[in-house]
Design a protein around this nucleic acid. Structure first.
Lengths: 203, 203
DNA sequence: ACCTGAACACCGTTCAAGT
DNA sequence: ACCTGAACACCGTTCAAGT
């Protein structure tokens, strides 16, 4: 058992988040519990409540780290590309790729619900917004003379579409639909949408 | 307390499902528990296990009823329309409308996860497939000379897109994105996608 | 000051025992 | 035969008590 002052609050926080991430990655979010996390880092469950407000708070912190990693991956895989269309398509592929590589973490970000009436804190909402802004930015060069509201809507539509594919794919509901490959579906969704976006707008 | 043979197995089943639906509708799926359902129908928790395999099974039955209602609503709202494009768009609006009217029930259908490795039973997958087939059928008149695989893919893309909008809207992540109205986003997604679908394909 | 350990009010699931 | 009630192994959260 850990004695007092073995670790700083910050160290305990980091240890707890890593333990939680391991549990989630290996067994899914249903296997996550305050008691398991505490045991995994050699502390009592009470100690977690000195560092986190409650379990929802801990999950929010885990989700923030997941969003950071997702954002970093999107930026990274975008970097080598020049063609505007290719760049937008790559955003979708990166998103799907991440969801596929880390399904449990990805699920938790979008399926975790705070108690009714509670909203995620602003710093968390900003991380979501940042990802959305990335789509908007890459969509702009394809948008011709469409105004910024149209671009926002286009980005939201694209993101929703890719997101929906991820969800249904993870839930196994797309095999039901007889679809061969998730990536080809993503490509089809984005390309067709963008064709319509450009056709119905700029000319 | 209920005495034995007060109700048939079928009656208990129906009472339990209704009680569960009420709990979910009013307080969300997190408030659902076997004990609460049992108490609500005047039986002991053990009794539920004579009628349902376990809590996952009870949830599956609730979800099946939700899918039936969603499907019925889509058919109903489709009936008065003639124009093929309007019909496809209506499917999206019905889907969003249902999710908006019954957010907790709708969420449970797509967020409930069976234990790792377990798949939903065939009869449940068929209910999902049936909804997908509806989209396929309505897409066909717009598909020109595209083959059935392209139509399947188109239906999957459309459904994914609308589904993603629902998820993000329910999670409150679309306000973050600065989108005015969910319905207009849906319309934009579907119209632009369909424009691309027809442009890139039939001609 | 830091952490524990026990308590409280819940869970899902099982099954011997009662009627 | 049908249902109960208690048990088991878990939960999240709190907080007096120990070091």
């Amino acid at each position: 058992m850990a004695r007092r002052s073995d670790h700083s609050r910050e160290e305990i926080r980091e240890m707890a988040l890593e333990a939680a991430e391991r549990l989630i990655a290996e067994q899914g979010s249903k296997a996550l519990s305050a008691r398991k996390v505490a045991t995994a880092i050699g502390y009592t469950v009470g100690t977690l409540y000195l560092v986190f407000e409650n379990l929802d708070d801990l999950i929010l912190q885990v989700n923030a780290r997941t969003l950071d990693r997702l954002h970093a991956r999107m930026l990274e895989e975008l970097a080598p590309l020049d063609d505007p269309m290719e760049r937008v398509l790559q955003l979708g592929h990166s998103y799907i790729g991440f969801a596929n590589d880390h399904p449990h973490h990805w699920e938790l970000v979008f399926e975790h619900r705070l108690p009714p009436g509670k909203q995620p804190p602003q710093w968390f909402r900003d991380k979501v917004r940042r990802m959305f802004a990335l789509v908007e930015r890459e969509l702009k060069p394809l948008a011709g003379n469409r105004d910024s509201q149209a671009i926002s809507r286009g980005a939201a539509a694209l993101w929703s579409g890719v997101h929906g594919i991820c969800i249904l794919a993870i839930g196994g509901q797309l095999e039901v639909a007889g679809v061969d490959s998730v990536q080809s579906l993503t490509r089809s969704l984005m390309r067709n949408y963008l064709t319509g976006f450009r056709t119905n707008g700029s000319s």
